Amino acid sequence: MPEDVATDNDFTVSDVWDYPVHDEWEVALDLLQELGDGWTAPTGFWEELGRAAGMLGLERSREWCWWRGAETRVGVIRADLALRPAGETFRRTPIPGAGVLRPMWDIGNRREDGERDLDIARVWVEFAGDLAPGARAPVRLLPLTSARWRHLTPGDRITLYETAVAGGTATILEVQPPSA
């Protein structure tokens, strides 16, 4: 918040700078990440924060910043994902939460012959390190080909596939176009 209009509840550039002075780099990084959530931060903002997080050895924060930078280029897709229980699919272990998993999704696209055409998107589990079979959580999706996902709107249901058997379903919560 600009200093001349900030209230006692707002944080300003001076507040952020105060943390590194006291060797509290992680707190400063967290504040800057929150700042980026409140406005449409440019890709360079997230890349620099990611670089700083990496230098501090904060790997999940680094990955999160790089993820957010990618979202400025391709858009934001948030969904509520419910995984099927372990006995119903091949998955017996939690899916990692930091954007490692790149499953296929049935998002309604069809081939010329009418068969479903699956699309790939990475999964970031919000507010958790992973998502166990049978569990449910809000996630962010980063599509391989974002243009194929632009028809989605809040309320749409999509299906996750890691094998021929559906591994879960998700309800779209939010779709934002690219900002870069």
Rank of each mutant, 00 (worst) to 15 (best):
E48H: 05
D23F: 13
R68K: 15
S179G: 10
D106E: 06
R157W: 06
P94E: 04
A41G: 13
D10C: 12
T7W: 11
L142N: 04
L31W: 12
H151N: 04
G97T: 02
E162H: 01
P42F: 02
A82L: 12
S179T: 13
E47R: 13
A170D: 08
E162L: 00
V165L: 13
A98C: 06
R122D: 11
G99A: 04
E174A: 12
P96F: 12
Q33N: 08
T93N: 11
Y161M: 03
E112K: 11
E59H: 10
G54F: 07
E174D: 02
M104R: 15
E88M: 08
M1L: 12
E3V: 14
A53T: 01
L152I: 01
V125Q: 02
W39N: 10
F127N: 15
R157H: 06
A98V: 00
D113V: 00
W67L: 14
G44M: 12
P42E: 11
G99T: 03
W105L: 03
A86P: 11
R78P: 03
P42C: 06
A41V: 00
L81T: 05
R122T: 03
L160K: 04
R140H: 09
T43Y: 09
T12V: 11
P85E: 05
R84H: 15
E112M: 12
L141N: 08
R73C: 14
